[in-house]
Design a protein around this nucleic acid. Structure first.
Lengths: 250, 250
DNA sequence: CAGTGGTCTAGACCACGGT
DNA sequence: CCGTGGTCTAGACCACTGT
């Protein structure tokens, strides 16, 4: 920051959880804005000063204020519109970034040995539930691959995957005993779009047997669908044993 | 009309000169970078051109390239380090933004009527599990509030909440039959930090009774803890009936 | 129309960290 | 050391949209 002649803004200094390490101007502005919103100095629905005004207040360029406010807007706490200005969100629909674990890494960073075990591989006509989920017509044949991810030999995740050979014909030649479907797809298929769905499900017989839990036990599932253009590539459901959780800061 | 029949550049023809249609320069660069990564033109681990080089290619300012690459880096697909340059991530730890629903809105946007029903309110000594989760010493007394969120009269979420009156003394006077704990806290408590944990759990007897499902049924739970500074404010667990899921684009 | 945010530039200095 | 990204500036024009 350059102009030291501007007094520090009179922001109610909320109790900080940790030491403030943000030294850059835009981070200072961002944190001040967050503090003013959370302290209700700027209550929900309120119009906050526009960029030029804040730039003057902080003695910085407007683009620096823009950067700070853009970051705040990304969390959903403020609503920005041209001409209308910037308002504190009335019902802050919070956005949080979720770090989606890559199973192998997840296992190995715990210091455990990672193993992959193929359970089954079949080329079959897709069941209705899978077809409709992937948006495929009747009679479509899909590759159905089931596998287990192991941490030090014990089950870490049960994977039930459907692959559309029309999108990736080469998949039919892959030996899933040697390379996991996920690893092969990650290395060979540049998907253009994906969707992730988190839910809870009761363990079915197969899943329970693999994860060593009771049938019907509460299982955390992550379902992913990926497309190349409009063509669905794969639908994969990864089920984690009871106790699994995923966290993020908000 | 100029010759727009040029196919979408697989290796993008750079040196833009004409006006942009619907996307801005930084978005074009971002999309090109994503396309080159996904098409493996830039394979995992590869060093990509540095900012100045890309700026020259696109005929734009370096800060515009910086904006584009910063957005890509936010998704975890590239790793940027000073002096070392920018590399395509070897194991892309994917980041996805999760939109955390505000229950009332979630219900009302479905066109359903929202209702809130208080089940119980007690001022009790905190159980060990709750204390340790919130990082509170033994003997701490907490306000325990259980409630139900209803959509058109049927259960949409079961809420089990613990509130620390030391952080928010006024909470003891609030009539939870009139206003939900969440609504009151959102309006009155500027938390500085929060943590969200998603998991699956088996429905306990109370939860099952409220959500009209079998005891032990797989329940999707969202647990939130918020702090003011170092002081924990509230720990809330919201449980959703079987079938509930939360989605995001990746 | 006019006010506001969104983008962009052509520079500049600085912080980090590999060599 | 010195190359690279991170930040910042003082402007500028444009796009959107409320009045």
């Amino acid at each position: 920051m350059r102009s030291d002649d501007v007094p520090p803004p009179s922001v109610p200094d909320l109790a900080q959880s940790g030491p403030r390490r943000s030294t850059t101007t835009w981070q200072v502005i961002r944190d001040d804005v967050l503090a003013r919103i959370r302290s209700r100095a700027w209550p929900p629905g309120e119009l906050i000063p526009h960029e030029a005004e804040l730039a003057a207040e902080y003695g910085c360029a407007r683009s620096t204020v823009n950067r700070a406010l853009r970051e705040v807007a990304a969390t959903g706490l403020i609503d920005r519109r041209r001409k209308a200005g910037t308002r504190v969100a009335l019902n802050p629909l919070r956005r949080a970034t979720l770090h989606i674990p890559v199973i192998r890494q997840e296992v190995e960073t715990r210091g455990a040995r990672y193993d992959y075990a193929l359970i089954s591989r079949e080329h079959v006509s897709a069941p209705l539930a899978i077809r409709s989920r992937m948006g495929l017509p009747p009679q479509t044949r899909l590759l159905h691959v089931r596998a287990l991810h192991l941490a030090d030999g014990i089950a870490h995740a049960y994977e039930d995957r459907w692959i559309n050979p029309q999108a990736v014909p080469e998949i039919m030649e892959v030996d899933f005993a040697r390379i996991s479907a996920n690893a092969w797809l990650v290395q060979n298929v540049p998907y253009t779009r994906g969707e992730l769905t988190l839910s809870a499900a009761a363990a079915d017989a197969d899943c329970a047997a693999c994860l060593l839990c009771a049938p019907g036990a509460a299982i955390f599932t992550m379902e992913r669908i990926t497309w190349i253009g409009d063509q669905p590539v794969t639908l994969v459901t990864q089920s984690h044993p009871p106790g699994y959780a995923i966290s993020t800061a908000i």
